[in-house]
Amino acid sequence: MNLMQKFLDRFSLYDLIIIALLAALGIATKSIIVPLAHIITGPFFIPSGAVAGGFYMMWLVLGFGITGRRGTMTLIGLVQAILVIATGIVGSHGVISLLTYTMPGILADLGLFLIGHRVCCLPCSFLAGLLCNITGTIMVNLVYFRLPLIPLVLSLSIAALSGGLGGMLAFKILEQIRTFQNRDQNVSSNQ
Score class of each variant (00 low, 15 high):
L62N: 03
M73G: 04
T100P: 08
L99I: 10
C132P: 02
I19Y: 01
G53N: 02
I134Q: 01
G94Y: 07
Y101F: 15
A23C: 08
G167P: 00
M4W: 15
F180R: 12
D184H: 13
S155N: 11
S162K: 06
L110C: 05
S155A: 12
A159G: 01
V90Y: 15
M57C: 10
T87E: 12
V61D: 01
F55I: 10
G111K: 00
C124M: 02
D9W: 09
L127S: 00
Q185D: 15
L8N: 06
L165W: 07
L21M: 13
G42C: 09
K172W: 14
L114T: 04
T102I: 06
F7D: 05
L165A: 00
L78K: 04
L112P: 05
G42D: 05
L161D: 06
K172D: 12
S92D: 10
F180C: 13
M168R: 05
I173L: 13
L62G: 03
L142T: 05
G77L: 02
A20I: 03
G77S: 03
L16G: 03
I33Y: 13
S162D: 03
I76N: 07
I115P: 09
I177K: 08
R70L: 15
S12I: 09
I173M: 06
I150H: 13
R146F: 15
S188A: 15
L130M: 13
P43S: 10
F113L: 11
M1R: 11
R10P: 06
L60R: 04
A20K: 06
I40S: 10
N133E: 05
R118Y: 14
R183Y: 14
G54K: 03
L165H: 04
Q5P: 08
A81E: 02
Y14W: 15
L83S: 11
L22P: 01
G49M: 10
T41N: 08
A24L: 13
L161I: 15
S155D: 10
I89P: 09
P43Y: 10
R183C: 12
D184W: 06
L131Q: 09
P104R: 02
G94A: 09
A81K: 01
L152Y: 12
S97D: 05
L98S: 04
P123W: 04
G167N: 03
M168Q: 01
G49Q: 00
L154A: 13
S12N: 11
P123Y: 07
S12M: 06
G163K: 02
